[in-house]
Nucleic acid binder design. Structure first.
Lengths: 110, 110
DNA sequence: GATGTATTATACCAATCAGTTAATTAACCA
DNA sequence: TGGTTAATTAACTGATTGGTATAATACATC
């Protein structure tokens, strides 16, 4: 896998377990064991996924007694959003009509 | 790598060479050799990247004499856009104000 | 048919990945 | 001190990745 931030983020998101973990964290930070509960996977397995997410900057980890609460950090997703936005005119059917509409408006103003 | 469409798409995009290929295809379909030109990589290497993109549904390939022109197919990117949109409130600082504004508008209309 | 050009297939390599089990660290509790 | 819980590290495995060199295929032209 490549090491630029965008590649790192895309790679981290290319796994349903990791995306599910992020979805869980969207409703608040929680412990590793708690995150592992829904999955049929050993704890070290989950721990590895968390390391990937952390390395991509998508989560941060604190420390509270013997727990290491994980917290969502969506910052890197902005890179994804920006990147994909550049292709919107190719995947969004209604984009052309919107562009037309905006052009109309602008023409009216001039 | 996993095999659901979203994972397939994320994985295909997690490589700068493949993203550069897509960027090139955004300005029109072209041949494999032409796509390979900017990269310090052998043709079979590029061919493999194209196979990944094709398998993810991000490009389609035609046939014209001895050329196999590649064409961007941004459809799967919509899945990415939709997915990341769910996290917008976490990465977009202005999102809250926008939501507020939209709510205001709606309240006025009722 | 022979030659040149565009592309893919095959076979191989080193590196990484996703998962496991077993051992270890760290903190709390009694 | 010893025991329990939380989490990571270490060591291993099989599968996949990203790249290469070389060979094969497909078509166009001479």
């Amino acid at each position: 896998m490549e090491h630029d931030q965008l590649s790192l983020t895309f790679a981290a998101l290319a796994d349903p377990t990791r995306r599910a973990i992020l979805a869980r964290l969207a409703s608040g930070e929680t412990s590793v064991t708690e995150l592992a509960r829904p999955f049929e996977m050993t704890l070290p397995g989950i721990s590895k996924h968390l390391k990937v997410l952390e390395h991509a900057g998508l989560i941060t980890r604190g420390r509270e007694a013997q727990w290491r609460p994980c917290k969502l950090n969506a910052g890197p997703m902005k890179g994804i959003a920006n990147w994909v936005e550049d292709y919107r005119r190719f995947y969004d059917a209604s984009f052309d009509r919107l562009a037309e509409y905006l052009k109309e408006i602008q023409d009216q103003e001039n």
